[in-house]
């Protein structure tokens, strides 16, 4: 037992070296189950950064599968983080790339809009503007308050997630959310087979489950790897800034700025602040806009006069 433990540790170490060397994500495959891996018998030499040579069996050199976070593990947030988003309304021209990227990332069917781009108009005289809206991962989430089974929960890193293997489908959270951020799988979700066969994790929200609630998850599977959520990177106008409040920094993929300065200088606000939900998503008001407002076909024809 001791010996095999030792082996495991050394494999992790060696495999880690490969990662250092290439800068890509390589690690001994499933290091915790290394006992079960059939050794090829062939060893290869690897060079560590300090010029040390190590020997590793070839069989252990497989790309890292994305770490699977079980529903229980997903209840803990990512250590030391407090994720936050800032959306610059002055830059949004309803290209909906964020929406499409989100749909692709989470294999969403078109009626499941985790990220909506809303046409907003503050008053009759004001120029309308586009507002991307998703789950705000509120610090005082009304949805989490009402969940009878702890299926939706607030994590230490600020993210509100859903355990679709626990959700009973009462939809109270959907009613409680003032931002209508939550969606429901009314029927069996239509997803590719390989997604349906993935092990379920609340961090990926995949595979979706019939009769349960789902919503924007702030892509913790991405942020865990230090990558930005796809909605942020997909936006060509840099509308979305994402970051860690504990670092007081947000990035839109091309620039990283100080969160506090950005919010102070640009008069950042939160949607429906008076409800006391304390969203983790901030908006920068649509002043000095980069683009004039252009209505799109959809809002022009549908629901005339339904704006609030």
């Amino acid at each position: 037992m001791d010996k095999s433990d030792n082996n495991r540790r050394s494999f992790i170490k060696k495999a880690g070296l490969a990662g250092l060397l290439t800068g890509s994500t390589w690690v001994a495959s499933d290091a915790f189950q290394s006992n079960q891996i059939e050794k090829s018998g062939k060893t290869v030499q690897l060079l560590s950064q300090d010029g040390e040579l190590v020997e590793v069996d070839e069989a252990f050199l497989k790309p890292i599968p994305d770490i699977h976070i079980s529903p229980e593990e997903a209840r803990e947030g990512i250590e030391g983080r407090k994720f936050v988003m800032v959306i610059d309304l002055a830059q949004c021209k309803n290209l909906r790339k964020c929406h499409d990227a989100c749909e692709k990332m989470h294999y969403l069917s078109p009626e499941k809009e985790w990220l909506k781009v809303l046409k907003m108009q503050d008053n009759e005289l004001a120029e309308p503007y586009w507002q991307p809206t998703m789950c705000f991962h509120c610090d005082q989430p009304p949805c989490v308050k009402v969940c009878p089974v702890d299926a939706t929960f607030k994590r230490s890193d600020g993210i509100v997630l859903i355990d679709n293997e626990r959700c009973i489908g009462c939809r109270f959270c959907m009613v409680a959310c003032p931002y209508s951020a939550r969606t429901f799988d009314w029927s069996e979700p239509q997803i590719p087979l390989e997604i349906a066969e993935m092990p379920y994790s609340p961090e990926t929200s995949c595979p979706p489950k019939k009769g349960t609630v789902s919503k924007c998850d702030f892509c913790p599977d991405k942020t865990r790897k230090g990558e930005l959520p796809p909605c942020v990177t997909a936006c060509p106008n840099g509308v979305f800034y994402f970051g860690d409040e504990n670092e007081d920094a947000v990035s839109n993929g091309s620039v990283t700025v100080k969160l506090s300065t950005l919010l102070a200088d640009r008069a950042g606000y939160r949607y429906m602040e008076d409800l006391g939900t304390k969203p983790r998503v901030y908006y920068l008001p649509p002043v000095n806009r980069a683009f004039p407002f252009e209505d799109d076909e959809y809002t022009r024809t549908q629901n005339e006069g339904h704006d609030h």
């Binding site: 983080r81 230090g226 930005l228 970051g243 860690d244 670092e247 990035s251 620039v255 990283t256």
Partner: peptide
């Protein structure tokens, strides 16, 4: 810069 999670903060 300062290294931050998603980029470098000047």
């Amino acid at each position: 810069y300062i290294e931050r999670l998603f980029g470098l903060l000047a």
